[in-house]
Each structure stands twice: as C-alpha cells, then as structure tokens.
C-alpha cells in the first residue's frame, strides 16, 4: 500500500467531461476547470491526498497514483 507521500494527483483530460463534481467537493480547493472546461490542478500544495475526487469522478479522469507509476 502506498503511503500518502508516495502518491501523486494525476488527471486524464481526455476522459474529463467537465461536470465540476471534483472541483466542488474538493475540501481544499485544489482543482478548477480550465478554459476548455476540463479538469486542471491549480493548487497542488493544498492537496491532502484524501482521494475524494477519485471516489466521486464519474469519468475515472482523476486519481491518486504512485510517483513511480508514470
């Protein structure tokens, strides 16, 4: 199991449909929609790696992955 330090927030814009669910329910406002209404990370320092975005993304477009798992 990865510890939080080894986890990285990853996104796949091609699968994002811009529903805004992850942005709205992120407890620390890490995310935003870009000018194409696709997900982007705007404040990674605030990320607590709680994983709520991954649990609630309907399109599997955001997740916590291992750093060495590019």
């Amino acid at each position: 199991m990865n510890t939080k330090d080894q986890l990285d927030l990853k996104i796949n814009k091609e699968w994002c449909k811009g529903c805004n669910i992850c942005v709205s329910f992120c407890p620390t406002n890490v995310l935003a929609l870009d000018h194409n209404e696709k997900i982007e990370i705007v404040n990674i320092d605030a990320c607590t790696k709680c994983g709520l975005c991954e649990l609630r993304c309907p399109d599997f477009a955001i997740w916590l992955g291992g750093k060495d798992n590019e």
Binding site: K10, W15, C19, N20, P58, D59, G65, G66
Partner: peptide, 22 residues
C-alpha cells in the same frame, strides 16, 4: 492513462464511457 484500479478491472479500450457529463 488511468489509475491502477481502472487498469486492472476495466476494458480501457472501451473508455471513455458513453454516460452524460455529470
């Protein structure tokens, strides 16, 4: 590109799925 969970348990060639935004 996807998470390990999606990689392991989904047919990635069929993604993204057809469900509506949201």
């Amino acid at each position: 590109m996807s998470s390990n969970l999606i990689n392991e348990y989904f047919r990635e060639s069929k993604l993204p799925h057809i469900w509506c935004p949201g």
